[in-house]
């Protein structure tokens, strides 16, 4: 089962080779998340409408390996944008993927950009 986790590695923007065209902005809930399918992978995309920012991460929660993070709640922890998993509310930084509850597991995060009303996710 852990092989799922191995598919997701944080990708710095500098290493993006292709931008995957996910869906129009209008398909993403404001101040919420949705899941994008990229060739067998599941990427959660979060629309921080209040700040006009977007973040993306693996959809699988490393706590129990369920594909659920896009259904979680976004928020901030002392200024760090974060996602809380809907299953047990473990929280992760959307900037670094770091676990904010002090546990060892973390998530992979990906660059996102919005162009001409479309959301793109960085891949390589």
């Amino acid at each position: 089962m852990n092989s799922i986790l191995e598919q997701y590695k944080t990708l710095p923007e500098s290493e993006v080779t292709t931008w995957f065209k996910a869906a129009p902005v209008s398909k993403f809930p404001e101040n919420g998340g949705a899941c994008v399918k990229i060739e067998g992978k599941q990427i959660a995309v979060f629309n921080f409408t209040v700040e006009g920012k977007w973040y993306a991460s693996q959809n699988v929660c490393p706590h129990k390996m369920e594909m659920v993070l896009s259904r979680g709640m976004i928020g901030e922890d002392c200024g760090t944008p974060k996602i809380a998993c809907p299953l047990h509310k473990k929280t992760f930084s959307l900037e670094t993927g770091e676990n904010l509850n002090g546990e060892e597991y973390s998530i992979a995060v990906y660059p996102v950009k919005v162009e001409d009303g479309f959301v793109y996710i960085g891949t390589n």
């Binding site: 809930p29 994008v36 399918k37 390996m65």
Partner: peptide, 17 residues
């Protein structure tokens, strides 16, 4: 167009995991 009960925004598939 904007179905909160869809697993993916860009596909009608369910979660194969």
């Amino acid at each position: 167009q904007n179905n909160r009960f869809a697993h993916f925004v860009n596909s009608t598939d369910g979660d194969e995991n």
